[in-house]
Amino acid sequence: MTGENQLVDASPRTPDRAPVPPAPVLPAPLVPAPVPVVPASRVRRLAVPALTLASVAAAFAYVGTVDPNEPGHYPVCPLFRLTGILCPGCGGLRSAHAFAHGDLVTALGANAMAVIGYFGFAAFMILWLARAYRGGPTPRFTLKPRYWWAVAVVALVFCLIRNLPFGSALAP
C-alpha cells in the first residue's frame, strides 16, 4: 500500500435481490360499543335466593312430614352401621324433623351442631334476600383455611364427646 488510507469493503458480495414488498395494512379490529349496564329488576335479583330458600323449605317440609324416627324411611348412617360410632351428622334428620315442628329442645337434643347450622343458614338467607332486594352485591361465604380447620376441629370434638359416656346428652 502506498500510505493512503483506503477503505476496503470486506462484506461478501451478494447478488442483487428484488425489493421486499411492504406488509399489507390490515384494518383496525372492530371493537364493540360498550353495552350500557342496566340494573336487573327486583324480581330477577330475588329469583336465585328465593328459589334457594324454597328448595330448603321443601326439604324441611318433607322431613317434617316423613318422620325419621320411624324405621324404613331414610337410610342409616353408614359410619354408625359399620362401627357404632355417631358421626357429627348423626341425628340431623331427627333434628330437622323436630325443628320443622317447632320443638327446639328436641332438635338440640338430636343434633346441636345441626341446629346451629340451621340458624347460620337462616342468617345468611336474610342477608342474601335483603341485599338482593336493595340491589346490593351477593354475599360471599368465604373463610380462611384456619377457620375451616377450626370448624373441622369443633366437629371432631363434638363427635368425640357425643360418643363418650359423659357426653351421652349430645347423642341422638
Rank of each mutant, 00 (worst) to 15 (best):
G91V: 01
R146S: 14
A114N: 12
D103M: 01
L129Q: 02
A10G: 13
P78Q: 05
C90R: 00
A59F: 08
V63A: 12
V38L: 14
R162Q: 10
L170T: 03
V56T: 08
V66C: 07
G91L: 02
P21V: 00
R44N: 11
G84V: 01
F60P: 13
E4C: 10
A98F: 03
D67G: 11
G117I: 00
F99E: 03
V115Y: 07
P12Y: 01
G84K: 06
F166A: 13
G92H: 06
N69W: 04
N111M: 05
P21D: 06
P24L: 10
H101V: 00
G102A: 04
R42C: 15
L156R: 14
L30I: 11
D9F: 07
A130T: 09
T52W: 00
V76N: 05
V31Q: 09
P32S: 09
L160E: 10
A57V: 08
A47F: 10
D67H: 08
P15H: 09
T142Y: 01
P36A: 12
R42A: 15
T2I: 05
A57R: 03
H101F: 01
T142P: 01
T106F: 00
S168R: 04
Y147T: 02
G109P: 07
A155K: 03
L26I: 13
L51V: 13
G135H: 03
D67I: 09
P165G: 09
K144V: 11
V115W: 05
I126V: 06
W148H: 14
P88M: 05
R134C: 14
A57L: 09
P78S: 07
R45N: 09
L93I: 02
G120M: 05
A100V: 00
P68R: 10
A50K: 02
L51D: 10
A50D: 04
A110M: 15
R162N: 09
N69V: 10
A57P: 04
L156V: 15
G92E: 08
G120W: 03
Y74Q: 04
P78Y: 02
T52D: 07
H97Y: 09
V154Q: 11
A130N: 05
Y74P: 06
L156Q: 15
L30M: 13
C90V: 01
W149N: 11
C90S: 03
Y118F: 08
P15F: 09
L86P: 01
P15A: 14
N163Q: 12
W149V: 06
R131E: 00
F158T: 09
L30E: 15
I161H: 03
S41I: 00
A28F: 03
C90L: 02
A155L: 10
A10C: 11
A96L: 11
G89Q: 01
T65K: 12
L46A: 09
C77E: 06
V63Q: 10
F121M: 10
L143H: 04
R146V: 11
A107R: 05
A23H: 04
V63C: 12
L7Q: 14
P137S: 08
H101D: 03
K144W: 12
L129G: 06
D67W: 05
P19K: 01
A122E: 03
G135P: 02
L79T: 13
A58S: 14
F60R: 12
T14D: 04
V153P: 02
P24C: 06
A61L: 13
N69H: 14
P49A: 12
F141L: 15
I161G: 04
V154T: 14
C159T: 15
A169E: 02
V48N: 07
P27E: 14
V48K: 10
L160P: 12
G167A: 05
C90W: 00
L170Y: 02
